[in-house]
Design a protein around this nucleic acid. Structure first.
Lengths: 241, 241
DNA sequence: ATAAAACCTTGATCTGAATCAAGACACTGC
DNA sequence: GCAGTGTCTTGATTCAGATCAAGGTTTTAT
């Protein structure tokens, strides 16, 4: 019913716009203009509202997702409702690939953390394109490898480090990402943060306080001033508070 | 100096032997005889003794490893010597791929758990082969995807489940792997087991006892009789003991 | 601007599992 | 068959962090 309309929208605007976006995504670096155009033809875009589910653990996965705008989380829920966040992704990141290459279904769920624009590439056509484009395949291998590396770090943190060390490590990661040694701004609520590093809001609150008392940081609502980077690094490696 | 000799060995024996092994490995399923022969030419084999390191976290990774015989572990060590086992792999499994596709170095270390024969495929030539062989690339993507899935399960277990649930889940996994609903044999020492599920030998010991008292299992040194599979499943999902 | 809802902090208490300590068991090679 | 070494069990104690409870603050939507 709406097809005529959507098509004409795509014709001039959607398509070219798509290429411009796709070009900025690491996964597609090194692809020719032709290949990008092919991609832009198979891409579908959708908006999600804050809190809206993108997919559920156990759903059949039928394509890969790319964050264009906004931020999303990928997470697991336990039987009794506790949450562990696996990733938080912003513009340019891809997610949901596991079932594309492995069959089966999503091992985790995904939700928009704020209003988000998501690009979707349907499985069959994407797989065909990868088979025909070695560079894209290699990019994808690199991408999955990076994720495996990230997971080993996360597992190490959860099982070998205590909460203060994990929190310190997270602040240092933010500082690196934001290119700012002096202060970082928390991209997520403290409740989300607690799920990301595997603890509770109460504990986060207490740790921030302790780290403040120890002269490592100063917390102003959503901004954290780093007063002793060395100290934070030491804490993140093995330290107690 | 030894080249003449090795070459003549390979000519009739080494090569064919290599192909026969490579053929049984999931990663290489669907490859033509030609492609397998190419692989067999770039493969190098090495034996490791129990306890011998295969690579260290931080080393430059310059190829992929395949277990031919024996069993190996991939693990992380914390600053203060605590260990978290990430994987235990037997014949046919590949490991050490992350740096091959991502550059950088090994995110974890690897050690032989018993006498083990390991096949090594040097990076450059393996990457070239993948680029030229879409089926191999797709197999590799599937392999990495499976590992990502395994990691999400491991992270969920570590952060959302308690020790009894993790232990129950591990026993059920073993039962599935060994195709035996009635009894499983532990493939590793209880000390290694404790590192695999992220706890200590003392705690493992106590939990086995509790699970015995609850009528779920009966432990005989290295063999565990499963007396109440339903109960184990319930415990693995969310249960307390 | 204001009400409602989310989010955050703080204190008191509880608990799962680590740690410390010491014995028992069970595989090695001699 | 026995000493010796590594592996496992058991008990006592400690501790990090979860949970419960309640008040305070910021954000969001109307």
């Amino acid at each position: 019913m709406c097809c005529r309309n959507r098509h004409s929208e795509n014709f001039f605007k959607g398509e070219l716009y798509g290429i411009k976006i796709l070009k900025t995504i690491a996964l597609f670096s090194g692809l020719s203009a032709d290949q990008l155009e092919t991609l832009s033809h198979i891409a579908v875009r959708k908006d999600y509202k804050r809190g809206e589910m993108i997919f559920h653990e156990g759903d059949k996965g039928n394509g890969i997702y790319i964050v264009e705008t906004g931020r999303i989380k990928v997470f697991k829920l336990s039987m009794d409702g506790k949450e562990q966040i696996l990733h938080i992704y912003g513009p340019g990141h891809t997610f949901g690939e596991v079932p594309v290459f492995q069959g089966k279904n999503f091992p985790a769920s995904s939700m928009a953390l704020e209003t988000a624009g998501i690009i979707f590439l349907p499985r069959d056509r994407f797989v065909k394109l990868i088979t025909a484009t070695p560079a894209l395949g290699m990019n994808m291998l690199a991408d999955l490898s990076r994720r495996l590396r990230d997971f080993t770090v996360q597992i190490e943190a959860l099982s070998l480090k205590e909460v203060p060390a994990r929190l310190a490590a997270y602040l240092l990661t933010l500082s690196r990402e934001q290119n700012n040694d002096a202060r970082v701004s928390l991209p997520i609520s403290k409740a989300q943060l607690s799920n990301l590093i595997g603890t509770t809001p109460e504990t986060i609150s207490r740790m921030f306080k302790k780290m403040g008392d120890a002269g490592l940081i100063a917390v102003q609502t959503r901004t954290i001033e780093i007063q002793d980077k060395e100290g934070l690094e030491e804490l993140s490696e093995s330290g107690r508070l």
